[in-house]
């Protein structure tokens, strides 16, 4: 047999077999993986928008909006946002009131901030309430924008307290919210 013909033949056969095996394997695992993904997302959105009985997905620009409805009336809107933190991307999901006047809830999906310092945006073991940082965003007014204060209790309705020693991580979350909320708000009102 011709040498180059053999090369082509062998490589093609290997590739074809590999493709067939993988497509069967994919068929088998894809539904399970998708189930994990949707159940995780659903659980999250349920936490973000608790008082709803149906969730509608809506595409708006680069964002996926999840609109929570109760008896046909919109009770909340949630969307995912990502942006730079102290060391890498912080990804979070935020729930808004239907008129975009305030944040109803905030959840950090993933972050790789400095352990023990920046990670306090998710979990602060030194506090009685380990999630105090994200809890501050509940019912936080976003008008005109969120402001963070240091080493002091927030006094205004659009203020939160930054984490001592992790100002940059705190600032990143606030900036991330400010830019993304205003973008989504604009897109949403235009619609």
């Amino acid at each position: 047999m011709n040498k180059s013909l053999k090369m082509i033949l062998v490589l093609t056969i290997i590739t074809v077999i590999s493709g067939v095996v993988l497509s069967y394997w994919d068929n088998f695992t894809r539904p399970i993986i998708n189930e994990h993904k949707t159940s995780k997302l659903n659980k999250l959105i349920l936490e973000i928008l608790p008082e709803n009985n149906s969730i509608e997905e809506m595409k708006l620009g680069e964002y996926n909006l999840y609109v929570g409805k109760k008896d046909g009336e919109i009770v909340g809107i949630a969307f995912k946002a990502e942006g730079g933190g102290y060391s890498d991307i912080i990804s979070l999901i935020v729930g808004m009131s239907p008129d975009f006047s305030k944040i109803t809830s905030l959840k950090i999906l993933s972050q790789v901030e400095t352990p023990g310092l920046g990670t306090k945006i998710v979990d602060d073991p030194s506090n009685e309430n380990p999630t105090w940082f994200t809890d501050q965003f509940k019912n936080l007014k976003i008008d005109p924008e969120i402001i963070y204060v240091k080493n002091a209790k927030p006094t205004k309705e659009n203020e939160i307290q930054a984490i001592t020693g992790a100002t940059i991580s705190s600032k990143s979350v606030v900036n991330l919210l400010n830019t993304n909320i205003s973008k989504v708000k604009k897109l949403y009102i235009e619609k």
């Binding site: 040498k3 053999k6 090369m7 490589l11 290997i14 095996v21 993988l22 695992t29 993986i33 994990h36």
Partner: peptide, 27 residues
Amino acid sequence: IPSEVRIASFIVIIATFVTIADRFLAA
């Protein structure tokens, strides 16, 4: 496997098993 295409063949075979392992873990 002809020796001229052995590296390519190895990589395809390895990639197949890696993908299987990856999907298995994800599932």
